[in-house]
Computed example of a mutant assay.
Amino acid sequence: MKRGISFEIPNEYGSFLWEILIPFEITEFVWASGGEESYLVEDDKLQEPLFPEEINGMDGLLLKELLEENKYYLIFVNLQAYPKGKNSLLIETYEEFVNSNCQLVLLVVDSIYVTIYCKDKAKLEGLYQIAKLKSFNNLLYITDNNDTRTRLSVW
């Protein structure tokens, strides 16, 4: 069974989260983030943190505007999507993910390694196709047989 996808993005400034999440309909969800390390970029210089602190329940419209309208540098990211009106406490394991309201987990590690877990198989296919279209490196499905992750965390 397909659990998610993994791939590598360029180690540079950009709007990669926006590009990656286009097929996921960001505005339909509320989002949680552990406040990991990533920065807004202005005039090719790192500025304030993209996610300054742990966030539970960020409206999808606010996240869409943040990701679409800014340039940023990703180092570590942990984003989780929850249906509106549902509990948005951060989950840490695949088992918690399966048994929770969380619909998507997006992790970025060391600026380039992206892992996405998604419950909706049609949306997972859309995420795979956009990563393929963007020519992100080492794109592959994460399955029950090849998933080596023990925690859904960047730490």
Rank of each mutant, 00 (worst) to 15 (best):
S100N: 06
G34L: 14
K64S: 01
L124R: 07
V154F: 08
M58L: 15
L17W: 07
N145K: 13
G14W: 11
S33P: 01
Y94R: 14
E53K: 14
K123E: 01
F29A: 01
T27Y: 04
K119Y: 07
L152T: 05
F136N: 05
Y94Q: 10
K119A: 09
G34I: 05
C102L: 02
L152E: 01
S88L: 02
I116M: 02
K64G: 00
K119E: 10
E96K: 08
G126H: 00
E48I: 14
E125V: 04
F51I: 11
V98A: 10
S15L: 05
R151P: 02
I26H: 01
V41E: 09
R149F: 08
A131V: 00
L61D: 13
G34E: 13
K134V: 00
L106H: 07
A131M: 02
L124A: 09
Y72T: 09
L140H: 12
T93M: 11
Q47E: 15
S135D: 09
D120Y: 05
V41W: 11
Q129M: 11
K134Q: 13
N145E: 15
L21C: 00
E48N: 13
C102E: 13
S38K: 10
V154H: 10
E19N: 06
T148K: 08
S100K: 08
A32T: 15
I9T: 02
T27M: 01
G4L: 02
Y141Q: 05
I112D: 06
D43Q: 14
Q103S: 12
L107D: 09
P49G: 06
Y13D: 14
M1K: 12
T27F: 02
V30P: 03
K64R: 14
V109F: 12
I9V: 13
